[in-house]
Design a protein around this nucleic acid. Structure first.
Lengths: 231, 231
DNA sequence: TAGTGGTCTAGACCACCTC
DNA sequence: AGGTGGTCTAGACCACTAT
């Protein structure tokens, strides 16, 4: 009996409500004995179930079936070029704007970028990019980059996607991502050839490295875009 | 040196490009020796990195740094009541419609429900629900339930949220989930008090159990909704 | 303080895959 | 066919925390 079988057995007991939500299940030692495996094997199985959100584990308190067995899903953050090519379409990028200036307040706030009044606020590299699939607008990208992470001279972002350059060259530690539905608006609508009122799927991402903010990105996807995953 | 330290060290070598994207890194045995730990400890660390999408592991071929270090994010599928209450708002539900009839073709197709012509297609339980936060529309839910998973008599879904009843009573094995941005439309707009053209964030979920389809849900979130997670 | 989960080790066998 | 990762075991110690 391997750890996957142990996990399956425990899972089935949870689903059959033999171990109901909120209930305490036997300790690792007891389960190991019952299943005839080493304790580490049970530990591995329960750790996986805990990661999936089906049980909650606490030292001394033991393992409980989650009161509300929340489902946890994982998805890969799309890399646009790969995404387009996976659909069998031709990928192309067009750099619409590139300038060094101070970012909007909302961007600075999200990144924790100094926003103290007037001149004190630092400049960032602002990029506006249109991603094309088979020549048609696929996504519109607004990005602000911390100049400190860029070499001098900086990469030619008209030729290299900023995202791909970053993942390959800038170590980063974490960030956050948010999804929402918005109207395209004037600026993006014009760039993508959409009515400003068109509902669009928007992804916003902040990334930090060891030495502070790296980049802020807002991706507006063309109508029809669906983010899918398996649970 | 524990497995987390090993993971951190390997991660730092990847980020510093000492081990560049696509490169083969030393085997577990070699790393274990270098770090002065057991091979299992290295294994644990590398397994975690593989799960995060930073390295790719294959037997015999060894471990490689991912060519395009895809970021993988995980998020908890929101449980509406918990979601609302976590915002410090009062939660309430209103059941707008409950009927046993044949689901729309799109729903049947998504679930793999028999759609052979006319009478042959089976009926499901259709629910339309409005979730309220502090008395204001928070989300609109359209749900189709496989009658075979329900007891007789069936639960009073005017009092118990279908979602919460399901997670507590119906074993399920998997499903998929998709997010998109749409216009609210006539029906949902009326229920939520929105202009039909309002962009809304929509979640669609299919769930299967051991004995076939369990449920199909379409959640329309009120404007301003953001799905957030950390990467 | 005592009990539970978290982790480590050394050795072993196995499954898979590339060579 | 051989090398690599995947897993198992038995025993041990540690860390956290409920009591």
């Amino acid at each position: 009996m391997g750890w996957e079988e142990v996990r399956a057995e425990v899972l089935s007991r949870i689903r059959s409500r033999l171990w109901a939500p909120g209930a305490l299940i036997p300790g690792e030692e007891a389960l190991a004995q019952e299943f005839g495996v080493a304790r580490v094997t049970v530990n591995r199985a329960l750790t996986e179930l805990a990661r999936a959100g089906l049980v909650e584990r606490k030292r001394k308190a033991g393992t409980r079936v989650a009161a509300l067995p929340i489902r946890r899903a994982t998805f890969d953050i799309p890399v646009i070029r790969a995404d387009v090519q996976a659909r069998g379409q031709a990928y192309d990028v067009r750099l619409l704007r590139e300038e060094i200036t101070r970012p909007p307040l909302a961007v600075a706030a999200a990144l924790g970028w100094p926003i103290s009044g007037g001149e004190a606020r630092g400049a960032m590299l602002g990029l506006e990019t249109l991603h094309l699939a088979d020549g048609r607008p696929f996504a519109h990208e607004i990005r602000w980059l911390n100049l400190a992470v860029l070499p001098d001279p900086r990469p030619d972002f008209a030729r290299v996607s900023a995202n791909e350059w970053l993942v390959a060259h800038v170590p980063f530690q974490g960030g956050d991502i948010a999804f929402e539905a918005l109207a395209a608006g004037e600026e993006v609508g014009r760039a993508m050839g959409l009515d400003p009122a068109t509902p669009v799927f928007v992804t916003e991402r902040c990334t930090w490295g060891a030495e502070g903010p790296v980049t802020w990105v807002r991706l507006t996807h063309a109508p029809g875009y669906r983010l899918k995953t398996v649970i």
